[in-house]
Design a protein around this nucleic acid. Structure first.
Lengths: 224, 224, 224, 224
DNA sequence: TATGAATGAGGATTCATTCAT
DNA sequence: TATGAATGAATCCTCATTCAT
């Protein structure tokens, strides 16, 4: 206890700051595993190592905790992508590849990937959560991806397409990959290989954006 | 009661057989609107015009009813697609277009489109339902789509791709369109236009399958 | 079971009609004994001989049950008094005596006497119940008593007083007697004798309404 | 912390002694506003400007605090009346008037008037509090009022009545006035005017105690 | 003394399920 | 078959109370 291990903060004060995040982490796991309705707050408390009552010190009710789980986990991952898009200087195709693979490593392959399923499942029951997710996550993600497509089109790298709708379409396979991992993945006898799935996805998407060869050559020349 | 026998209660006799289907129809609506856990059997019974007890004459419990809803609604739509693939004689690109637009009209734009969301949401809680859906719906849909891609490749119409994974990828936007309509659609200020979404999807998919021009020409010649 | 005891109604149907009243009766006892907050619905159910869930078939929630208890028990007793006032043909003093003694027998000495205490105690927490009680019970009781005083004044039997305020004042000892029985009665070593209390009350009230002797004589003459 | 010692925290020293009374004052307000069960100690602490834990330094539990509120507020008001009765030299009717109006100013019109309602409401749940209140408040008040009536009777000013019961009866309107202000007062559209109520009360009470005129004259003569 | 984070027993409420009719 | 009254297990949430600091 009095060991020189650098433990300057009293255990309690530190706990107080850490508690909400510990609870959110526990709740994320359980909500992802079981869904909103089937998750008992007893279990969340137990997994977070606190008592039931403690939950209510930090969250008004189950719904509030649910929203905190979504907001707390999902927003940080958007910033990364937006920054990347802003800073990137290579080809737009490479940017797409980098974004997709980055998303997989930071989100798609983690517990956070369970959130889209959660939000989709509960959108009807929590309209304001759905609205939040739509405004803060979906619109931002669409906006980011639209910038990438526009960037490629402006540079003459991508062909002209219906960008507004393609954004919707092109993000769907990523969302589905995340959803899949928390729904049917465990039913598969021959497991889906996420990286091959992503390769096939990138192959499809980038092929579909490629200009007809004639123009492509012009573009290639310009770039040099 | 003591009335003469010339009224064999025709309406009733008919209803008796129809009961399970009426219940399933009512349950479909409510499950789609509210999700599994939030749907009360009271309401299902009320909407089906029967008493709560009657539900238990036809379904052993809520879970059983849920499964019946899924099974009863989802299987019929697959047959149509499979038959089409078998019989179709035009180009594979046209077959893809026809399948996609047919799916939209028969399924994507109907209440049935709510089922994928439901199954995804409850997959964790009903593993055997998920397994059923995976085996009977997803695998069959994948298989059907795989045949189409293979058909195009065999005919030299489509370029060579990783068909196994592309099937997964290529179906995702359709599933997501169905899911979208039952999750975030009501949050949108500028509503997604499903037919344009499908156009963008087909445009993307078919472009990505196109052979490079050189080969394309060969193919075009062959086709003529 | 098949005994010839005249039990013509099926037990269930009869129960359904009787249930709300059985529950209200049980709830009255417990609310009176323990107050609103300290009464557990478990106990109400047990005393009514039903399960907890059954309460919710008949009452929306605890508050609703509470209100039903008050409304169901208190309104019937008012009618008696109002009818008596309307029909009575003797002196107003005798009418007062009859009303007071009737109230004691029908209400003051029964469980119903616990209700004023209840309503007083919970008025702050249930403003609409208080409003109901004020409108439907207090105002009606005041109105009835005002008619009696006015009747006596009109007949020259009672002296002129500030009737509006006297009504309030004069009913207070009756309310207090009811309240007393459910609050301090059990603390007394020498028990309050309700009938003597009522005698003292009537003596005080009627004396205070008596005209000065001179006028009294005139009145007496008139009456003959 | 390491500041020079010239600051003996005067404010704190003062507060330390005042704490229990500040808590009691805060608790009185809340108990009166909401009743015992609906008052949260959180709120008491907040209103008293202390932490929840601090309450337990001064009171063993909620019940103890409740009792302290009652005892601390109700006893002081009795002494005034008892002293007045002992010292008063005017007519007994005037003494009654003086007592009643004094009570209104010192108690009936203040927050303290909420206590009778509280005690009545919780008498069943806190028998020892009820006993305390009965012994220390009600019996003393009765005793005091009995002395006044006896004083009037002994002086030949009041007629002979059943003093023991009249004491009960005669105090009831005062208690009810206090209770009224904390129960139905807020329901009234035409507010009760307390001073007129008290006038009507005194008028009734003193009239009822008046001797028949013949004797009254004798008494008047004696007094001169 | 004073704090306030943490506790957990307690109670209202819901709803799938049963079963007497 | 059909009903719907009744059940009671399950779970959210509250808040008086404790105790490490």
């Amino acid at each position: 206890m009095n060991a020189p291990e650098n433990k300057p903060q009293p255990r309690w004060a530190r706990r107080k700051d850490a508690r909400p995040e510990e609870i959110i982490a526990a709740a994320l796991e359980l909500f992802v595993e079981r869904g909103f309705a089937s998750t008992r707050l007893d279990d969340v408390a137990a997994r977070a190592g606190v008592s039931k009552g403690t939950l209510y010190l930090y969250f008004t009710n189950k719904e509030d905790l649910f929203k905190a789980v979504v907001r707390g986990n999902i927003l940080p991952v958007l910033q990364y992508g937006e920054d990347l898009v802003t800073q990137y200087s290579g080809t737009s195709a490479d940017l797409v590849r980098k974004l997709v693979r980055g998303w997989w490593e930071m989100t798609g392959s983690t517990k956070i990937a369970g959130i889209p399923k959660l939000v989709i499942a509960e959108a009807g029951n929590f309209p304001d959560l759905a609205k939040f997710y739509y405004d803060e996550v979906i619109l931002r993600a669409h906006s980011m991806f639209r910038r990438v497509l526009q960037r490629g089109a402006d540079a003459g790298e991508f062909r002209e397409v219906d960008i507004d709708h393609l954004v919707h379409v092109a993000l769907a396979p990523l969302v589905m990959l995340a959803v899949w991992g928390h729904s049917f993945a465990c039913c598969e006898e021959q497991k889906l290989h996420p990286l091959r799935y992503l390769d096939a996805y990138l192959d499809m998407l980038l092929h579909s954006l490629q200009k007809p060869q004639a123009e492509e050559k012009k573009h290639a020349r310009k770039r040099n």
